[in-house]
Design a protein around this nucleic acid. Structure first.
Lengths: 185, 185
DNA sequence: AAAGATACTTACTTAGTAGTAAGTAAGCAA
DNA sequence: TTGCTTACTTACTACTAAGTAAGTATCTTT
């Protein structure tokens, strides 16, 4: 039996990705879970506490996933990352970074720090993956690996946003071209 | 004498780019302009009316700019587009599309339509610019011009978001790599 | 000078928001 | 059995949001 606390975090995650952090309220969480507003405050006194938990959960998930892929060739690892975003897209979700970066200036300092931590972790992993992949001749790109990592993350993030406005095919067209650019050459 | 209405739109534009559409209130506009809340409602009865005007203003600006560049070679036109984003970055602003795409699901239908219109106009221009540029051998890229246009817009948009979280150098590293990829080869 | 439009202000309503203080029911621990 | 903890609910405060109705000062037109 998944506890109330987990359900709240899961609900908040979904809401951040669909409506944005500033656009959802505790009522949006409490009503569907059939609990009271104050029950959410019991587990997460301030909204920032809930936001931090959502980000922490995402960091844990990312770390767990990339850990499982560690034995795979780099192009395959990259492909798994793309699959995650592909699923976000089909579910109408945007990525946490994309959503929270927009509202970044309005977030509490400790939540800002957590978002930055998430960014660093993702970028570090991707930079390493690209670097190793180029060494093993499985990936091909010009310039610094960390600049290229920034570009890829930026593209994945934003393609989900554009998909929402221009239709979901936008994501696939960007992702396919991106993979083609870097895997074959 | 710039009228109050223009000042309101300009203020709203800045607020959308810094805080997001859902995170600012009419008070954030009326207080700095030293007018009353209701004065903003006089010009823009509903918040969506103001949002639509902000987007319309951006469309007009974009059309005016690209019109002025029409005589330039395509790589130069592209470079001008990048300059605009470079200025956004140095001012700590994100682009309208990036900001409004995050909040897209929470926007009124007529405002959603206006955002989509803006997206179409920008993409159409960029696709055309890329296509012509490749024909004239001034730009070099693989695949469809409209997929590439999506990628570039997506990268520019999201690099501003990432800059906010990971530091402003993120934008420059992405933009420089992007231009290098497409101009020389 | 009179009538009307323009651009507001004053003063308000309605409907939310995050957050809290105090109480309670159920389970466990000594 | 008494006391403590967990996980809430009830009932609220303080505040902020968008939006409105009615009044006013200042131009503009006739």
């Amino acid at each position: 039996m998944a506890g109330t606390k987990d359900k709240i975090v899961s609900m908040a995650d979904r809401l951040v990705r669909t409506k944005g952090f500033n656009a959802f309220s505790y009522k949006d969480i409490s009503a569907p879970l059939d609990i009271k507003n104050a029950a959410v405050h019991y587990h997460f006194p301030a909204k920032a506490d809930l936001g931090i938990e959502v980000v922490a959960h995402e960091i844990a998930l990312f770390t767990s996933n990339t850990g499982k892929w560690a034995h795979l060739p780099e192009d395959e690892q990259l492909s798994r990352l793309f699959d995650i975003f592909r699923r976000y897209n089909s579910e109408g979700n945007i990525c946490l970074m994309g959503s929270l970066a927009t509202d970044f200036e309005t977030l509490a300092p400790d939540m800002q720090a957590k978002v930055q931590e998430m960014g660093s972790i993702i970028l570090q992993w991707l930079t390493n993956c690209l670097e190793q992949g180029r060494k093993n001749k499985r990936l091909h790109f010009k310039g610094d690996a960390d600049a290229r990592a920034l570009m890829i993350i930026s593209n994945l993030q934003s393609s989900l946003l554009l998909s929402r406005v221009m239709g979901p095919s936008a994501f696939h067209r960007i992702a396919d071209q991106l993979l083609e650019d870097i895997c074959q050459k």
